[in-house]
């Protein structure tokens, strides 16, 4: 008996109507995962740069970095994503007040195999999530760097390694291992934060669920499914990170 056939619990609850939306919801989930991994990666790479700038950058650079981190952490993510999203619109309105041709094209899109992988809303989401995540990740990375004893860098310099080489071969390999437990906070917050993309028209999982509800009126059921999917996703992420942490642990420590 298929879950969609007459008499099954799915049908009894009226969920078969949601079945029509399965493809859209899956596409939305794929978009959510895509936003997540790209933003997490951008956030990580930029976060390492920010953390190093704050830790080793000297008075000027470290203050700029600290300022960036404070501003990003002190303002709502939703405001940040709207800011990035409307920026080209505002620029167009300001630079070409009489209408088209616009200074910046906003209707571009890149598709691979019929799937839209990059467009103005998607890029805005990736940028907003990546730049936001970078600020949080930078603090986790910097905390890990600061927890490494001074003697490690001292020994590296005494051997004749430059500061950059010391950071690369001695400090970062240890910092990356140490930061995993606290960093996994950010890794498991970020999938939930990707829902802000919905507000700038990206068709992510959350957005698709809203559309499915508008069509089927199965709001409680849909939100329960949405919650369950995020829960599974985040559970998997924390399990994987816990395993990575155990596997990369330095023996004896």
């Amino acid at each position: 008996m298929s879950v969609w056939s007459q008499g099954s619990p799915v049908v009894a609850l009226g969920l078969e109507k949601l079945g029509d939306w399965a493809d859209e919801l899956l596409a939305g989930l794929a978009m959510t995962l895509y936003l997540y991994f790209v933003a997490l990666t951008i956030g990580f790479l930029l976060g390492v740069g920010l953390a190093l700038g704050r830790q080793y950058g000297g008075p000027v650079l470290s203050r700029i970095v600290t300022g960036y981190i404070e501003v990003v952490r002190g303002t709502p993510l939703l405001a940040q994503i709207f800011l990035i999203y409307v920026f080209p619109y505002s620029l167009n309105a300001w630079l070409t007040p009489d209408g088209p041709p616009f200074f910046m094209d906003i209707r571009w899109a890149i598709e691979i195999g019929g799937i839209r992988v990059l467009s103005h809303p998607i890029l805005s989401s990736i940028l907003a999530l990546g730049l936001n995540s970078a600020a949080y990740q930078a603090e986790y990375i910097r905390g890990a760097i600061a927890s490494i004893g001074e003697g490690q860098m001292l020994a590296a310099r005494a051997l004749g390694l430059s500061q950059m080489e010391g950071i690369r071969h001695v400090i970062l390999p240890q910092a990356f291992r140490r930061m995993i437990p606290s960093w996994s906070n950010e890794a498991s917050y970020l999938p939930k934060y990707t829902v802000v993309a919905t507000f700038i028209t990206v068709e992510d999982f959350f957005g698709m669920a809203k559309r499915a509800i508008a069509a089927t009126f199965l709001s409680l059921e849909t939100w329960l499914i949405v919650a369950a999917v995020y829960l599974v996703l985040i559970t998997v992420i924390s399990r994987v990170l816990e395993r990575v942490y155990q596997k990369t642990k330095i023996p004896g420590l």
Partner: peptide, 9 residues
């Protein structure tokens, strides 16, 4: 060094 400072990793 007094505290060895071996690279822990």
């Amino acid at each position: 060094f007094q505290h060895f400072n071996l690279f822990a990793h």
